[in-house]
Design a protein around this nucleic acid. Structure first.
Lengths: 332, 332
DNA sequence: GTGAAAGCGCTAACAG
DNA sequence: CTGTTAGCGCTTTCAC
């Protein structure tokens, strides 16, 4: 509106007003404990009067720390939205901001290129499907943490839920209810989480002497679940449909119901992740809930500067949520 | 890992290798069209060899453009996740990155403070509940756009769906189906969207001679919907429960069903926003779908530098989605 | 505790 | 078309 370009307020302006050197003014904002009480107050007063705000960009240039952590996530999927939300909150607590790089599939390359320009303090790869060579290019001395990828690349610290224990618990649970056959519903087959959940379910089913088959949803989505549900209806219902993710399970349940099946009785359905919707009455889904708070806390710890010797692979147990999609019991 | 601190590659390194001046090397990345073909190639080769990546932080400091747009959103709510996702994608198309500032309620203040330090190119306020005085402090010559706030502050451009036309269409729709009474379910009463949707629904109901009452969900959440649903069950069902948002509607539907009501027959339910889940079979909710793609495109246009004379108030019509939550017809 | 000088890596404004 | 000179706003030395 106003044609007058208000010059930006800097430490120099503040210093002049407070009658101290530029350096001292700056110090008040960077390390106040090194400045005498009176001086500090004078500078703060001057800053307030001028409406001074420290310039984070300038600080970053000099200090080589941007105060920004990036996260690379797929542009859709409920689960990833949850992850981003938790990450943003956890980072805010330690004074870092979150820069979100979401990719559609094609433009991962551009995404990584963009990442490299900002001197990010660290980068969280919250997708099980970031190609290996891109990873290499993204590193560059930056701290990298792989989130939710149970088979991360060499030397990259990773944080994820204990997929194997979780899936095994689900198989045990349905077996305990008398189930004799399980059909595993794959999301994206190439994803490491899918592979691990699938193989664990299969192995555990064999150990317990259950029949194990599989169908494809082709993606970790609701529509993928509907697709898989049609396959289940066409092939004759197993005792259990074990979905690779909650979102898949929602689609499966809806498709089964529209085919006339009574979920929890005619067929049991399980998910994985523990989305908020899994507890909603319409689905009331038995699932493994990821302890996102603690997983994210670990992730933040690893992604920020500070000695962490050997890149560790951190795993936290999921929480088993038994609900009516397997028990058939009345709902809340 | 390696103890050797690899010095950062700069334009100077590239320039030396390519035997040109620093300025020329830099120009190849900033405005390649101003550099001779041969020179460009030589510089590019040198850059590739050294693994040079332009430093966005340094560019920002000098050019006063960070290449980053911020968005302030509540830390939860399906709808806001959708908004963030669309924004990130739209900004990526124009070469900008998205910095997400999510707030929990208490720390809005810190959030705004953090915002000011990064020389953001623009800031999108994607919440109907950012206090006015904070807005003032966030401005600072920066481009500000209010998203989804139908009653934005003076002089701040805003973009939102046409709430009035949408709600009126819903009232007309249920009236056309023979409904005689509507109970409006409030989310957060203080929110501008809630006020506008509520008053429009009330006015339109009066015009058509329908009985109009209201109950409170207290927040735009699933749990808020459950709460409101209990109130509805206790007070005797109206012909229509008109929720202030989809997420509220999901809770209402689940609560009504657990109370034995048959949604679509005993009572009609409508939402607002058009979340993906509204089309899921379990809810199949009649709602007004926000044309997020076009709304976000407008938002991006307004938030980036470029002449936009009078701060406009842009409104786009929502898409009426009629589904079985009002018609009771068989589902897909 | 405070100040002076230097420079992070880039771009704006000019010369040549 | 290319090079030179500054300097963005801050922090890192190192004196005082």
């Amino acid at each position: 509106m106003a044609a007058v370009t208000k010059r930006r307020i800097t430490t120099v302006d503040v210093a002049n007003l407070a009658n101290v050197s530029q350096r001292t003014a700056a110090r008040v904002f960077a390390s106040p404990e090194l400045v005498a009480e009176d001086t500090r107050r004078a500078v703060e007063a001057a800053a307030a009067e001028l409406g001074y705000v420290p310039n984070a960009i300038a600080r970053s240039l000099k200090s080589q720390r941007s105060g920004i952590v990036g996260v690379v996530v797929p542009s859709s999927g409920q689960y990833y939205h949850e992850v981003v939300r938790h990450l943003a909150r956890a980072l805010a607590r330690v004074g870092e901001q979150l820069l979100v790089f979401s990719f559609d599939s094609a433009d991962v390359d551009d995404t990584i290129a963009a990442v490299r320009g900002y001197q990010l303090d660290g980068l969280v790869l919250a997708s099980a499907t970031v190609p290996g060579d891109l990873l290499e290019r993204a590193r560059e001395g930056r701290r990298l943490v792989s989130f939710n990828d149970p088979a991360p690349h060499e030397g990259i610290p990773s944080v994820s839920v204990d997929n194997e224990a979780g899936v095994a618990a689900l198989v045990d649970h349905v077996a305990g209810l008398g189930a004799r056959s399980i059909t595993f519903v794959n999301g994206l087959r190439a994803a490491a989480t899918n592979k691990l959940r699938r193989s664990t379910s299969r192995r555990r089913a064999q150990v317990l002497g259950l029949t194990w088959t599989e169908v494809d949803g082709r993606a970790f989505t609701y529509d993928g679940g509907r697709r898989a549900g049609r396959a289940l209806l066409a092939g004759g219902l197993p005792d259990v449909a074990m979905a690779a993710s909650d979102e898949l399970a929602f689609g499966i349940i809806d498709e089964l119901r529209s085919g006339g099946a009574h979920v929890g009785h005619d067929i049991k359905v399980t998910g994985f992740d523990g989305l908020a919707q899994a507890s909603w009455r319409a689905y009331d889904l038995t699932t493994i809930e990821q302890p996102l708070d603690s997983l994210i806390d670990e992730t933040v710890r690893l992604v920020l500067p500070g000695r962490v010797e050997t890149p560790p692979r951190i795993t936290a147990p999921g929480i088993v949520r038994i609900r009516s999609s397997t028990t058939g019991h009345p709902l809340g």
